[in-house]
Design a protein around this nucleic acid. Structure first.
Lengths: 110, 110
DNA sequence: CGCAGTACCGCGTATCACACAGTAGAGCGC
DNA sequence: GCGCTCTACTGTGTGATACGCGGTACTGCG
């Protein structure tokens, strides 16, 4: 199974969710997502998502120097981002419920 | 929210699930999926999915005449298809659990 | 005969995650 | 000082796939 396709439409929300806990920068977010179970997530995917979310106004960003490497570009949720997270969460809930229902309706390989 | 993206990676499994109940033809499957809650699913998406699944060996197909319209191309699961459904179901379970965990970890716009 | 409903395709498009490669700063060993 | 590794960010091209739109074709009805 290719969870790549499953990820679509969820990565945005996952990034927003992770950032709602606390601000973070790209490299850090990748780590956090992987620790959360999205093990296969590619770094380029996350950076791309961050750019998209930022451009759509869901995120703010500010750069801070680091003591162990190049500067870090931190991202945080805007109110619009928080709302988007909320909506994504609702969508996810409805969608996952629907899909679950379809699988439950299927008789097969227990 | 665009459930289009969420659908990716799930439509295959949804079609397999619906067919595990009983064989069906394209037009019918579209209706069944919509009734199951996937309201926005496009017919072309389903036909494309059926073709793909058939070519990958997950489905068999046979044509029957209809008394109220053109012929119908019925599809049914092969053993490989049943197994793919089973795997997809497992993937879904793990994935949805992970995503749920990420949303639960987020504090936000309750 | 035209029209609606059923049934099936094909083509072009958009989105999105990913692999891969490249840039760059900081600290380490030699 | 040089190369190496780790941290950190970015750009390009590719593949998968759902969708919109349009087209074909058969049936029954007025």
């Amino acid at each position: 199974m290719d969870s790549t396709q499953l990820l679509k439409g969820v990565l945005d929300a996952a990034v927003l969710a992770v950032l709602s806990e606390r601000d973070g920068y790209g490299y850090d977010i990748v780590r956090r997502l992987r620790e959360a179970g999205l093990e296969g997530v590619g770094d380029a995917s996350v950076y791309g998502t961050l750019r998209r979310l930022f451009q759509s106004g869901a995120l703010t960003s500010y750069v801070l120097p680091s003591d162990e490497g190049p500067h870090r570009k931190y991202y945080g949720l805007t109110p619009a981002g928080a709302q988007q997270l909320s909506e994504a969460r609702d969508s996810w809930k409805a969608f996952s419920h629907t899909v679950q229902g379809i699988f439950d309706g299927a008789r097969s390989a227990a």
